[in-house]
Amino acid sequence: MSAVLEVKDLKMYYSTKQGMVKAADGISFTVNQGESMGLVGESGCGKTSVSMSIMRLLAENAKIVGGQILFKGQDIVKLKEEEMNKIRWAGIAMIFQAAMNSLNPVYRVGDQIIEAILAHEPDVTFEEARERVAELYKLVGLDPKRMDNYPHEYSGGMKQRAVIAMSLACNPDLIIADEPTTALDVIVQDMILKELSKIQKKLNMSMIYISHDIAVIAEVAEKIAIMYSGKIVELSDAVTIFKKPAHPYTVGLMSSFPSIHGEKKKLVTIPGEPPNLLNAPDHCRFAPRCPFATKECWEKTPPYEEIEPNHYVACFHPQNLRKQVSING
């Protein structure tokens, strides 16, 4: 398995009047060919900042201050804008957070997909592009006849499907799905996620799912990274994360979602709120909310270590924690 995307120690800061906001502070992960990864965290922990850094679609006051983003071995942080434009959509495509608004209201939906195809493959004729869009429509479960409709004539679920079809238009190696189904109701959400996952496996694409909902991610991702306050605090395959969560925050996330199977338990919320990313402290950022925090946690940042094969955690007390969980649970 070759790595499609390697993010190494990515640091992306926003400069504001009050100071630096460290939205992504030393993020590292790898996505292999055909692999699907989930990026989970509370609102405001920097998930979208990571995806926008990978697409290099940064706000004016945002800057990648350190680290590398290797797409098929090429560092895209250093690329010129024109070179980056070639990678966008053809190499890395995206399904945006607000799919509802990510279609331009004044153009036909089909034309917006065709536009992406023609921008990257100048040899393709308009008719060929139309045929490809019709194929994509069938793939995502839309009637190809609806290509010539405008976005406002689509329902929410249809727009979502159209946006998925658009992300597939140029056969990208990697798709970043940023909260792809947040605006939809649970049933449509489930259906679309399953189809998306099926398409991903069928086309052997790599995928990064971003969500605040670990239950959603669990269904589709093979690998899960938990983000907290601009850092990845735990990263492993989905099974390990669910069976043996090592970081207190991951445990908190697990117990704050209901499970349909398993026994009925009282949902536990994590006390406190996510820290302000502005002038983030030097100690462990979860310490103020952590029931296991010791003096050490308030003094320095825990290292991001591999505690067992392919299981990375940034915590001083992962072992303790596991005992605790097994005693309690």
Binding site: M94, F96, S102, E115, A119
Partner: peptide, 9 residues
Amino acid sequence: TTARAKGLP
């Protein structure tokens, strides 16, 4: 943002 992400000039 979508239009930008599509890699349009």
